[in-house]
Amino acid sequence: MKIGLVSDSLAHLPVAEVIRTAAELKLDCIEFATGNWSTAPHLDLDALLGSAAARSTLMGMLRDHGLTLSALNANGNPLHPGDTGQQHADCLHKTLELARLLEVENVITMSGLPGAPGDRFPNWIVTAWPPETQTILQHQWEVAQGFWRETAQRARDNGVRIGIELHGQQLAYNLPTFLQLRDITGEVVGLNFDPSHILWMGGDPLAFIRQAGHMIYHVHAKDTLIDTVNRATATALDNRPMTQSRERSWSYVTLGYGKPEPWWNAFCYTLAHFASPDLTLSIEHEDMNLSRMEGVIKSVNLLKRTATMEKSDYVLPAI
């Protein structure tokens, strides 16, 4: 396995400092954000698309520090019924083109979420009742089908693959909805697997890996703390701001502060066994209570103890 870093985890640092820090932490790679829900503080998407020299400079900085590029991240909502939908779609499509130019295999994004017919805002359907929920879902998947069929072809044309990050307020947020999306796109679309999202929604990431292993193309290393006292009354569907971590039923935390280290041993081992021992674990720091640098350092140290770093060379003894 390789250990990497989502660049927005250190969004307060200039790109040279992010790269230097990753090298000092002896990481293998970086995943850079290109726009949409990120301000993309480290990359200028249009400048890189338009300048071979700019692309060469970026890749040279990585190479000089012994690092590679694991993915480009264009997380957003390209199916938004308002003006931002087209903007996010354009950013994603440009990111696919840049991935080809930079010779990086993975582009990370989310499935997006339309509204109900005539809505100005997305509408996340999480229940089967009342009956209008099914009408809304039918409309949403019709919208998604056209967009994702075209976008999957763009990925194939650029020789890259897309890793969908399952998340709340998205059309694809669990395994059944992801499989529905993949029926549209084919194998060019896989998973950017983030266990923290599965945890807060009440799922089991280890069971998820066993079922979806071959479809996992990239991994975000992020943890979730479940506050069992708050969750008992608020349930998992807690829409209060993330800053209210004392009151919320769950919060994103630094690795090891939600699930203990033995769980992360099992997570990495299950990934290696059922998915691939060559996956990248890209650290995504979103802990409201730790500094960005401390959270990244603690996460790196945990993964270096739990990830499977070398290929197996075990041979059964002769009988």
Rank of each mutant, 00 (worst) to 15 (best):
E150S: 14
P277H: 03
L13Y: 13
L237Y: 14
L290P: 00
F267E: 02
D64T: 05
D227G: 09
A116D: 02
A266G: 09
A155P: 13
D83G: 10
L302C: 10
P81G: 09
R182I: 00
Q145L: 10
V300I: 09
N75D: 08
D46S: 15
Y217H: 11
G186E: 11
I198C: 07
L67G: 05
L96I: 09
F267C: 04
E294Y: 05
G163T: 12
P130A: 01
L96K: 11
N158K: 08
W141I: 05
R120K: 10
N73T: 12
N73F: 01
I125K: 05
L175Q: 12
L5N: 07
E294A: 15
P78T: 11
G163K: 10
C268S: 14
R149F: 00
I283K: 07
A47T: 11
F32G: 08
N289Y: 09
E17V: 06
I216K: 00
E24M: 11
Q86S: 12
L96E: 10
R182C: 01
A33M: 01
D183G: 10
L179Q: 15
L58A: 02
R248M: 09
Y252T: 06
A234Y: 08
S299W: 13
L5R: 05
P195K: 03
C91Q: 04
S245W: 06
Q134R: 14
V18A: 13
N123L: 04
L303N: 12
M1N: 04
D46C: 11
R100L: 05
H139I: 00
L62F: 02
L290N: 03
A53E: 13
L137C: 05
D83K: 14
N230C: 07
G4V: 00
A74P: 02
H93Y: 00
Y217P: 01
L5H: 04
Q87I: 12
A232L: 10
K311V: 00
L27D: 03
G168Q: 08
G118V: 03
I216G: 00
E31S: 04
R149T: 05
G190Q: 09
S70I: 01
G76V: 09
M309F: 13
L175W: 13
L10A: 10
H88W: 06
G256C: 14
N230H: 06
S7I: 07
T151N: 03
V229N: 02
N106A: 04
T95G: 05
L72C: 11
D227M: 12
R20E: 15
W129H: 06
L27A: 04
H220C: 08
A89P: 08
K259F: 04
S291I: 02
R246A: 07
M201A: 10
D64R: 11
